[in-house]
């Protein structure tokens, strides 16, 4: 966090002081970086990235949303853009632009048992491939790019959502944490039904 967050706003599941102009500028920089050509990564880095993604995918697919939430940093963003190529979130809406507080809201909302769009709840299972990884030269954070297909069954209907993920991970004393998860849906700017599942 580039600017000092006042102590009373330190708990980012309740407050969002840190999502400021610099936050948006950094997001634009890393979003562009996620679209660049990267050098080949070593086998160890690829395997590490793959196992991180597989574990995260499993937490979502089995509905362990509280555990999934714990994978994110305090200054995280879970971002599902509408515009193909991600666009400019300062003047465009997204399907999800969740800072820590809103992501906590989302998980809370899913677990109220009152969201009719999730009664019955989505069952999902996702495949992730084409994993690439590199390091952000500015922040030293780990960047991962992957292709996904999410299969969803809800209310007797099976749907398929293809796209690609961009992850920015930060190393903590407790392993990798997600600073940014960008979900680029192939059909993000087209008609879609009930996007309340978690990507």
């Amino acid at each position: 966090m580039s600017r000092r967050t006042p102590a009373e706003y330190a708990d980012t599941s309740s407050w969002s002081y840190h999502v400021d102009d610099r936050f948006y500028a950094e997001l634009a920089r890393q979003s562009a970086l996620l679209r660049e050509d990267w050098p080949d990564a070593g086998v160890a880095e690829i395997v590490e990235a793959q196992s991180f993604l597989a574990r995260e995918a499993r937490l979502v697919d089995v509905g362990r949303f509280n555990d999934w939430l714990e994978q994110f940093t305090d200054d995280c963003l879970y971002w599902v853009p509408v515009t193909a190529g991600a666009g400019d979130p300062t003047v465009e809406v997204s399907h999800a632009f969740d800072d820590r507080r809103r992501l906590t809201d989302r998980v809370y909302w899913l677990r109220t048992g009152l969201a009719f769009s999730q009664i019955p709840a989505s069952r999902t299972r996702r495949l992730i491939g084409n994993v690439e990884t590199t390091v952000d030269p500015v922040t030293d954070e780990r960047l991962i790019r992957s292709t996904f297909v999410v299969h969803e069954l809800r209310a007797g209907v099976t749907k398929t959502y293809p796209g690609w993920y961009g992850h920015v991970l930060r190393r903590t004393g407790d392993g990798w944490r997600i600073k940014l998860k960008q979900v680029n849906l192939l059909e993000s700017d087209q008609i879609h039904e009930n996007l309340t599942l978690v990507f």
């Binding site: 853009p81 509408v82 515009t83 666009g87 465009e92 809406v93 399907h95 087209q190 879609h192 009930n194």
Partner: peptide, 11 residues
């Protein structure tokens, strides 16, 4: 009106 829109379909 911005180019990004939520285009929601229902049955």
């Amino acid at each position: 009106v911005r180019s990004a829109a939520h285009r929601m379909g229902y049955r």
